[in-house]
Design a protein around this nucleic acid. Sequence first.
DNA 1: TTGAAAGCGATACCAT
DNA 2: ATGGTATCGCTTTCAA
Lengths: 341, 341
Amino acid sequence: MEQITIKDIAKALQLSVSTVSRALKGSYKISESTQRLVRDYAEKHNYKPNLNAQGLKNKKSRCIGVALCSIPNSFFAEVISGIESVAYNKDYLVIVTQNFESCEREVRNLENLTWRSVDGLLISLSTETEDYSHFQQLHEQGLPLVFFDRVTDAVRTHQVVADNAGGAASVTRHLADNGYRRIAHITSSPHISITKERIAGYRQALEERGLPFREDYVKYCLHGGMLMEETAAALDELLQMTEPPDAIFTASDRLTMNCFTLLRQRGISIPGQMALAGFSNFNSPELLNPSLTTVKQPAFEMGKIAAELLIQLIESKREVKDFQRIVLPTELEVRASSGCF
Amino acid sequence: MEQITIKDIAKALQLSVSTVSRALKGSYKISESTQRLVRDYAEKHNYKPNLNAQGLKNKKSRCIGVALCSIPNSFFAEVISGIESVAYNKDYLVIVTQNFESCEREVRNLENLTWRSVDGLLISLSTETEDYSHFQQLHEQGLPLVFFDRVTDAVRTHQVVADNAGGAASVTRHLADNGYRRIAHITSSPHISITKERIAGYRQALEERGLPFREDYVKYCLHGGMLMEETAAALDELLQMTEPPDAIFTASDRLTMNCFTLLRQRGISIPGQMALAGFSNFNSPELLNPSLTTVKQPAFEMGKIAAELLIQLIESKREVKDFQRIVLPTELEVRASSGCF
DNA sequence: TTGAAAGCGATACCAT
DNA sequence: ATGGTATCGCTTTCAA
């Protein structure tokens, strides 16, 4: 069963290709009867427009590209699922790329995606990225972009983020209110937006509760916890301080799970010797031993909204000037690891 | 900075488009010097071939499609990561679709993918799929397909699977050897290959250990544990039997985590009142309370191998007749939930 | 070794 | 309301 083309329909129905094309698109200048005729024939013979041809002509592919650090990271996997769901309904396909926190690979992924003429891009920056010129170029060329999670103001476009400062503040406040006085923070690369926002929230909460903000209680993992050793180094530095912390607030899914594992490996009881709480999208935190206090981000929702905004940009007739920054609420779920039994 | 075309290069270099095209492809009938000239110019001006035009001409897109049930499922997310890694190195892009275990959506995803002329497809069947004619059609049309994880023999092509029977047997044997005599099995839809293989392994191990295989100890979750209620119903049926099981072997990541949650919710101690062990790719099973005995599948590896085989099929000059079934080893990791302290 | 030209499938402008 | 035709960017056959 070969794929039929608009030409075949034209021949079969004794019409011109232009008429068939217009009938298929429902142009107003084609008679009702012809439209029905063409459509019925197309339907019956399972006609599908050739997307490469359409793309060549219209410079559209109905594909959107996704650029992020790691597909199997549970947070991002959920985001992708949200993106796919929206794309499916709006008849777009989703191409995924991951950069493993490498800026170089991020650039190459971007090149691959834009070569293949995706209609737009959904981006969460790698931890390494400090130069945004590759994004700026694409943006200037008119390619619709939406940033999510790890965003930048260097490109004026939509942003979809979680309430990182709010989430960080609420978990820090919670730890403070549970009696912890030396709350450390293990976070990702200092370059990325989420790190700054989470530190800001952490700092604000400390000040609200009359606790000092100590630089040496903040440890950065440049690869966002992708490497266990990096997290181990950060944790061990904290443990070896003369005044070690009594609680740790971790800034991401991977960092939280890494610290959990490492603390147990080191025989440090949670929360007895060290409380632990942080951002995590692991979906059964209550099954851990001890159950884990988490700040949850609406990952699926974030993907959905980002995809909706992107498709809106793609399909907008007029140039969009009014860009939004959508901030989604996080949720603090208190469990045993932060000392609350 | 506009995207330049082959025509622009031809004009600038005073050559014909055909020469440029051939030079770029490294045809043997173009002089070394011209090739260098063209390539340097292309490089400098950041020439990228228009993939729609190439696709239109060659019926190739250098995109591969992935069709599976759920992107955020940790097993499949890892598989996708493996696929992306291979695709990146071979210069393909990866389009992902999920069907949420709906056969109808699987068919629609397939249509969407093939319309857009992907060069090949990586498929893990939905639990609902019993009719394979949509795959057979594509296969007859010559579209390269590779099945992974949930496969079918209805289409003669490569398959990449885990050693499901072996994994099931080893965990069942382990439970039996730990003294459990009434080992139940909660599994996915009976239609899919992995279910049959895992039941076979379970049955074989029971017989090896002189334990009866009881139909009523095998419970099916038609949506593969996508719905917690479904798992709850299966579990409760087991619990309410006059001779309830003393151990449960669960057939998938989601089923395992669901049962874990449900047993705890019902106040049933693991492994005291009920042992639990099963397939799971959750990557910190030792952090659970109790730590979880698992059968691990090499998910990333599976994605890698499937993608390699697919790209091999796509790029093969002669028609491939010799199809492989690759079986990857699973790994039993014994922990507390199966009664071994 | 290089060039001219046809054609992939769909669209849209210009006629009628 | 419908048809003819150039065009998108690239590949490939045929000719030189």
